[in-house]
Amino acid sequence: MRITIINGSPRKNGATAKLLKEIKSRLEKHEEVSVSYYDISSKPIQTCIGCMRCYNTGICHMNDYAEDLNAAIRNSEGLIIGLPTYVSNIPGILKNYIDRGHFVIEQALKNKYALSLVTYEIAGGNTALKTINNLFRYSGGIITGSILCKVKFNTNPLSDRMTDRIYQKADTFYNAIRTRKSKRIIDVILNYIAIYILIKPFVLKSRDKYTYVIDRWKSIGVIR
């Protein structure tokens, strides 16, 4: 069972990282689990320029850390993304990667299980959580749960209560993958609307610009 964890914080040892590493430790108690942990700030990720070449080739012409993360997700059965709130939403360094991540149109998370984690101090936690869960949802992911942690700046988030909650969510995530739990009906409906009603008709009108996307859709059953 291969799982990718992405720390979407610019801080490698902040509250978000501490919680994610606790999840990693919990998951690795299972012998069959292999966890790859990535700090999004480890290497530079260039900004998407909107050239749309990836829709034809499947990869970005800027071959940097974003493509390493994409490969890790592609080869995993589960994805966990953790992030702090910046200006009451997701941090720019994570958004920069999401723009390069081949997520929604390519349905990169089709049949993959997802868990979200957000830390915040004052406000915006639910906003950031909604943003990342919508990314999972519209990318075809199977959401197993979410963790929202209110924590003061530069303090340890691992209270006994939060640790128990972390373990419960990690166990739910693991069991969902192990048993191949089905997607919630509401997520099925929202993903259907995003892909079949909004995106698919648009893409099929410009097939020559979306060669890879169409091939990808054929491989996962979006179109025949």
Rank of each mutant, 00 (worst) to 15 (best):
V104R: 14
D68M: 08
N133E: 15
L109Q: 05
G140K: 06
T155P: 00
A114S: 15
Y65I: 08
L94M: 13
L94F: 12
A66L: 05
D171W: 07
T85F: 02
K169E: 15
L115H: 12
L158H: 00
S76H: 09
A71S: 15
S159P: 02
D99T: 11
V104S: 14
K95H: 08
N75Y: 08
K110D: 08
K152F: 12
D64N: 12
L129T: 06
Y65S: 10
V104D: 10
N75T: 12
I90A: 14
S88Y: 08
R178H: 08
I142P: 03
G82V: 06
A108K: 15
T85W: 02
T85N: 01
P84A: 03
D171T: 10
S146C: 07
R178M: 12
G82E: 05
L129E: 11
K112Q: 06
R100M: 08
I93D: 04
I122C: 01
I105W: 05
L79G: 04
S146M: 04
M162S: 01
K169W: 01
N126Y: 10
R165T: 12
Y113N: 09
R165F: 09
A66P: 09
I73C: 04
Y120K: 10
S88I: 03
T144G: 06
F173V: 07
D68V: 15
K169A: 14
Y113H: 07
T85A: 02
I90K: 02
G78L: 07
K95F: 06
A72C: 03
T119R: 07
L115G: 09
V151M: 05
I147W: 04
I132D: 10
T131G: 00
E121M: 13
S182I: 04
S182C: 03
G92Y: 07
G145S: 11
I73E: 03
A71D: 14
I90Y: 07
V87G: 00
N154H: 01
K169P: 00
G140N: 07
T155N: 02
L129D: 11
I122W: 06
G125K: 12
N75L: 11
Y86F: 13
L135C: 12
I80R: 09
T179S: 14
Y174S: 12
I142Y: 05
A128F: 08
F153V: 09
S116C: 06
E121P: 00
V118D: 07
I147H: 04
V151F: 02
N156T: 05
V118P: 01
L135T: 15
L148H: 02
L129G: 09
N63L: 09
E106H: 15
A128N: 10
T131N: 10
F153H: 13
L79K: 05
L69N: 08
D160E: 13
L83G: 09
R74H: 13
T85V: 15
Q107I: 06
L79F: 04
K95D: 09
L79R: 03
S139N: 06
L129W: 10
G124A: 05
R74Y: 13
R137H: 11
K112C: 04
G125S: 10
D171K: 03
Y97H: 05
A71P: 00
T163D: 02
T127M: 10
V151W: 01
G101K: 08
M162V: 13
